[in-house]
Simulated scan of single mutants.
Amino acid sequence: MRSTERDGTIGIGALAGRFGLAAHVLRHWESTGLLAPARDAAGRRRYGPADVVRVAVILRGKEAGLSLEAIRTLVAGDHRVRSEVLRREAEELRARIAAAQASLALVECALGCAHEELTDCPHFRREVAERVRVDRSG
């Protein structure tokens, strides 16, 4: 029976493979304090169920556009600091979502345009002009 079956832990390769990551990503996260795996008698990293959850949290945070520093604060910071970071990150996410929605509107406008030359389309020109106004004021 392998030690992974006996003690419920897995090695770095197995954990990385489970999430489709390269092992060096997990080592990097460890070096930044996001992960702290146990070590076996030979010094090899051993990841338990809590580490698996932590990797999922890190990946979810990265998908949301959070920095590793923000993710570290989320998982290790106190409630007050965590709330401050989350408020700031929520603001930034709202701004990115608004920008993505504006970009999507522009693309959809262009897709639906019947004009031979896109810049001749009054609706497309309004969309572009609105984007320029937003960029200048923001």
Rank of each mutant, 00 (worst) to 15 (best):
3 S>Q: 14
3 S>C: 08
8 G>M: 03
8 G>L: 04
9 T>G: 07
9 T>C: 05
13 G>I: 03
16 A>H: 05
21 L>N: 09
24 H>K: 15
24 H>W: 06
25 V>I: 10
28 H>F: 15
30 E>S: 11
31 S>V: 06
35 L>T: 12
35 L>H: 10
36 A>I: 02
37 P>Y: 02
40 D>S: 11
42 A>G: 15
46 R>S: 13
48 G>E: 12
48 G>T: 09
48 G>Q: 09
56 A>H: 08
57 V>M: 12
58 I>K: 08
58 I>E: 10
59 L>D: 11
63 E>A: 13
66 L>V: 09
66 L>E: 06
67 S>I: 08
69 E>Q: 14
69 E>C: 06
72 R>Q: 09
73 T>F: 01
76 A>C: 06
76 A>D: 15
76 A>F: 01
77 G>K: 03
79 H>G: 04
80 R>K: 10
80 R>D: 15
81 V>T: 14
82 R>A: 14
84 E>D: 12
86 L>E: 04
90 A>W: 00
90 A>Q: 04
92 E>S: 11
92 E>T: 14
93 L>D: 06
94 R>K: 11
98 A>Y: 05
99 A>S: 05
100 A>F: 01
103 S>M: 08
105 A>P: 00
108 E>Y: 00
108 E>S: 07
109 C>M: 05
113 C>Y: 12
114 A>I: 00
116 E>W: 02
116 E>G: 15
117 E>W: 01
119 T>M: 09
120 D>P: 05
121 C>S: 10
121 C>L: 06
123 H>A: 11
124 F>Y: 13
127 E>M: 12
127 E>A: 13
130 E>Q: 11
133 R>Q: 08
133 R>Y: 00
137 S>E: 15
137 S>V: 11
137 S>C: 06
